[in-house]
Design a protein around this nucleic acid. Structure first.
Lengths: 225, 225
DNA sequence: ATATACCTATGAAAATACTCATTGTGGAGG
DNA sequence: CCTCCACAATGAGTATTTTCATAGGTATAT
């Protein structure tokens, strides 16, 4: 279980880190909006602890970005001022829980456990148009029908769905799906081949979104027409 | 480029983090021996900045573990006492560079660049017996001859070589090579199949080490007879 | 407009990876 | 020592992934 702590108060951040590591979570930390945003883009976490007040921005903006990107991380908002506005705003933006400072570490641990448990039970879907994948079951539905996908096809579709509408660079996609086995000298034939198959499967199944090519960069998942 | 900072002084750690992130490195931090050791086991970094004095152990022990595991991370030792012993001990244990506190951030950045540059040039090998792989070129040599390996075979061999002589659990191997696509309900047929092929290739090529089965657990790479 | 260079797409062949059914093997308990 | 059962290995069949040769597109410069 991988947790990201976004908190600019170093003392508090350290206390939380130690407590969570003692519980065998894998912990990473970010101290400001910028680095938090980058880390969330670069990695997948199971849970994010999000301070609202950051030196260079609001934690709530990170939350919006996250949801806009269709990412599935659970988020617990942590706010210094026990203010109702933050709580409401946070939960409306899709946060999973809220915790006001100061709090007891055991309280935090309990919330994390509960949030993670809830998430695993919930039939979480990532969707765009009539295309949906369920990471829990590794399953794809298009236009209401289950469609079988190979592993690479699934991985690519997952990557597209979690960044629906955004520009997806070939290099980033390759890195995400194929890992570090990519020589820069390589061409992207292996990628083209998979994208071709994925496109065909999506079209055959009647998907109302499609993988557009962006010349010189990569792809973008957009609704048809 | 992913860098791990192992440093118990939070102020210093934060300063370094900000400076490195500004240079577009991906930064993670650990504040003690235990969590550093775990993170190094769980992830691959390009460079590790290692403080010698940690609350619960010595950074030099982390260095030894790293080398024992055959991992290829570059390490820069950072020591508070500008002591000669630490420097000598660190470099003897295979550290790539040494930096005494206090230091200027630019100095640190220069060292990191140099260490990473050097590493990319160097023809690093991981070996056991007459079997060697060169991660840079994704190449395997057995008994002096290049042997071609498929991707999975290479990955498995890499995992074995970096843990030569140690017990390797099936679950850990599967996790490392296949990633998260493993249902616990699954059997390990896919793994058996790959191990079989790898064994045959190694034997055919005349390797003097072999993959032993450890009943109920997994495997171990040992010299023949 | 046209040429050009560079991207991207495609089908088919080749290589690789996985599954399944079956056989072999190690070790605990009788 | 034998039996049994879970674990591990195997070969063959199937599916997936990659490579290769070739063709089709897109932007830029002429």
């Amino acid at each position: 279980m991988k947790i990201l702590i976004v908190e600019d108060n170093l003392d508090l951040s350290e206390i939380m880190t130690r407590a969570l590591e003692a519980e065998r979570y894998i912990v990473e930390t970010a101290y400001d909006y910028t680095s938090a945003s980058r880390k969330i883009g670069d990695y997948d976490y199971d849970c994010i602890l999000l301070d609202v007040m950051l030196p260079d921005g609001s934690g709530l903006d990170i939350l919006s970005e996250l949801k806009a990107a269709g990412k599935r991380e659970s988020v617990i908002i942590i706010s210094a001022r026990g203010s109702i506005e933050d709580k409401v705003a946070g939960l409306e933006l899709g946060a999973d829980d809220y915790l006001a400072k100061p709090f007891h570490i055991v309280e935090l641990l309990a919330r994390i456990r509960s949030v993670i448990r809830r998430r695993q039970g919930g039939t979480l879907e990532i969707t765009a148009g009539n295309v949906a994948i369920r990471p829990e079951s590794h399953t794809v539905r298009i236009a209401g029908k289950d469609v079988s996908m190979s592993r690479k096809e699934y991985d690519i579709l997952h990557y597209f769905l979690s960044r629906s509408g955004h520009l997806i660079k070939k290099e980033a996609l390759a890195e995400a799906v194929w890992g570090d086995h990519i020589d820069q000298s390589d061409d992207f034939d292996f990628l083209y081949a998979q994208v071709k198959n994925l496109r065909r499967k999506m079209a055959d199944a009647g998907a109302d979104v499609e993988i557009k090519s962006i010349y010189g960069f990569g792809y973008k998942l957009l609704s048809k027409e």
